[in-house]
Design a protein around this nucleic acid. Structure first.
Length: 543
RNA sequence: GCCCCCAUCGUCUAGAGGCCCAGGACACCGGCUUUUCAAGCCGAGAACCGGGGUUCGAAUCCCCGUGGGGGCACCA
């Protein structure tokens, strides 16, 4: 029975890299009729973020990667949060302690730091110096009573080890290359390394698919599995995903972009450091530290405020970011599946079913891949073009609710019509950026100065002249239909001896405020007679 | 510094010794279409990191070099 798991820690939104790991685990399970387990790795109580687990779960749901077992759905091997399985870790660590396979240690962080620095000065690789005779429990208790931080370290066997990876093949590590790692912290919680080993065993995990950054952890885990008498699962380490420039995709990228924008504005004299603090709603000290490259000084909400105010778009990093940008979950998953995996041949656009069908470790690459946003956009464009109208409508509603777009209040019929008129869209957000003004109040239309000069004022105000002539033509239309409106526009172009563009573009600027909108006759029809005439008059009055 | 992994167009990749003077997709460039934007259509350019082997034959196998990346926490 195949049982694979995705095990995120609740520190924020789901990262796209994590989403790919989750997807591969899910695909692997579906392919082999196995069970996909979600386990929350929350052993670092300080790093856990309130509400993060919910966000993680919601993002997975949005992507269509539903666990078979997990905190929400339960299952026979629960609980599915590590914080609720402490007795298991305790029993395991006691066993190792009793057998002399693990031992107590109580060096302070400062003491360890001194040892590390000394090793570094001698150009030696630091490894924790295992004491010749292992401390007794009584000694550990005494140290604890004295206020020393008592941890438990795993006694790593002094022998080479070869672990087999389903993707990479055999990987060998020499004897003595790993130090005796901490498996129990002084605060009484197990470390990640220990909890994974214990949980994977108790949850009967058969395959561990995880990012390649964990490769070096594998021998440690296998040594522990042997020490505990567990049969190690099979391992498959997935290639990493980087930014297009080869850097790591991290939330730092967001800070970077916003910081640069803020600094540029300061340099241009438009902002001051105080403005940064005020806009972010942070202390001036925090703002200054942040400007000086301390990412941790401002949180994401504060940075988001700065980005909005500075008018910069932050790079999408988390699944939620892509959702907000208007990507379809099926497009995102298809795109992300193709980084580090190939279904073989020329196949590229795949349904989830096809992905399951073609999925295999053979198709997984060893080399790291890069996340090409241009390609994602192209994939999304294709998905938008091929999606059924109902799907697009549902996806748009989902998105509009998420970003709180004013267009979310439109009825289904109108919305479907608008979406249809926006075909060729690259993201759901394009619908709003293209057709949004048609649904805004007449007096909220902002005229794009460029469009005004280029289209209305040019050639001695020919655009305005066309609008003046358009007014009676539109007024006389009794049946407000696309064909009538189209006829009116064509008629005017012909009688005035100008091109269609010379008539349509001024009208477009009048009703939308800029040179872009859906097809003109359709836009006008959608707007309605009254509003159209109102907007044309309004535009002329601002001449 | 030590350990580990990797290496085909700018990017994602196909390719499991002859089917490859290397195929697809995105991007780019040129053109078409056109009442805007986007979309669409047609076309062009673009890669086997270097050096040694093995073999009748190497993008494919081996070695070395170079380059890129990851890991070296009481974080996961």
């Amino acid at each position: 029975m195949v049982r694979a798991r995705f095990a995120p820690s609740p520190t924020g939104y789901l990262h796209v890299g994590g989403a790919r790991t989750a997807l591969f685990n899910w695909l692997f399970c579906r392919k082999h009729g196995g069970r996909f387990i979600l386990r929350i790795e929350d052993t670092d109580i300080l790093r856990n973020i309130e509400g993060a687990e919910r966000k993680l779960l919601d993002d997975l749901t949005w992507l269509g990667i539903e666990p078979d077992e997990g905190p929400d759905q339960g299952g026979p091997y629960g609980p599915y949060r590590q914080s609720e399985r402490r007795d298991l870790y305790e029993a395991a660590v006691n066993k190792l302690l009793e057998e002399g396979k693990a031992y107590y240690a109580w060096d302070t962080p400062d003491e360890l730091d001194v040892l590390r620095k000394a090793a570094q000065a001698e150009k030696r690789t630091f490894r924790y110096p295992r004491p010749a005779t292992l401390p007794t429990k009584a000694e550990a208790d005494r140290a604890r009573a004295e206020g020393r931080p008592v941890v438990v370290r795993f006694r790593v066997p002094d022998e080479p080890i070869t672990v087999h990876d389903e993707i990479l093949g055999d990987v060998t590590f020499g004897a003595g290359e790993m130090e005796d790692l901490v498996i129990y912290k002084s605060n009484g919680w197990p470390t990640y390394h220990f909890a994974v080993v214990v949980d994977d065993y108790h949850m009967q995990i058969s395959h561990v698919l995880r990012a390649q950054e964990h490769l070096m952890n594998t021998p440690k885990h296998v040594f522990m599995q042997r020490a505990l008498g567990y049969e190690p699962p099979k391992f498959a380490h997935l290639p990493l995903v980087f930014n297009i420039d080869g850097t790591k995709m991290s939330k730092r990228d967001k800070h970077k972009v916003v910081r640069k924008a803020a600094k540029d504005l300061i340099k241009a004299g438009k902002w001051s450091a105080d403005d940064v603090a005020r806009i972010a709603q942070a202390t001036s000290k925090a703002a200054e530290a942040w400007l000086d490259k301390a990412d941790t000084e401002l949180d994401m909400e504060q940075v988001t405020r700065l980005a909005a105010s500075a008018g910069v778009v932050m790079p999408e990093i988390d699944v939620h970011d892509f959702k907000l940008s208007g990507y379809l979950p099926e497009a995102l998953t298809n795109f992300v599946a193709l980084i580090g995996w190939s279904p073989g041949g020329d196949r590229e656009m795949l349904t989830r079913q096809e992905m399951v069908e073609y999925f295999s470790f053979d198709g997984i690459n060893k080399a790291a891949g890069r996340f090409d946003r241009e390609k994602l956009l192209a994939v999304n464009t294709t998905y938008c073009a091929e999606a059924k109208p109902e799907r697009l409508l549902a996806a748009f509603r989902d998105w509009a609710a998420c970003v709180d777009s004013s267009m979310k209040s439109l009825d289904d019929a109108t919305l479907s019509r608008v979406i249809e008129l926006c075909k060729g869209m690259r993201t759901l957000a394009d619908v709003v950026s293209k057709a949004g003004p048609l649904f805004a109040p007449d007096d909220s239309i902002v005229f794009d100065p460029d469009a005004v000069t280029k289209i209305l004022q040019k050639k001695n105000g020919q655009g305005y002249a066309m609008l003046e002539q358009m007014l009676p033509a539109l007024e006389s239309i009794s049946a407000w239909t696309v064909s009538e409106i189209d006829g009116a526009i064509k008629g005017l172009a012909e009688s005035a001896g100008v091109s269609m563009g010379d008539v349509a573009q001024p009208l477009r600027v009048a009703i939308a405020g800029r040179a872009v909108s859906p097809a003109i006759a359709e836009s006008v029809e959608l707007l309605g007679k009254e509003k159209t005439l109102n907007r044309v008059r309004l535009c002329l009055s601002r001449r």
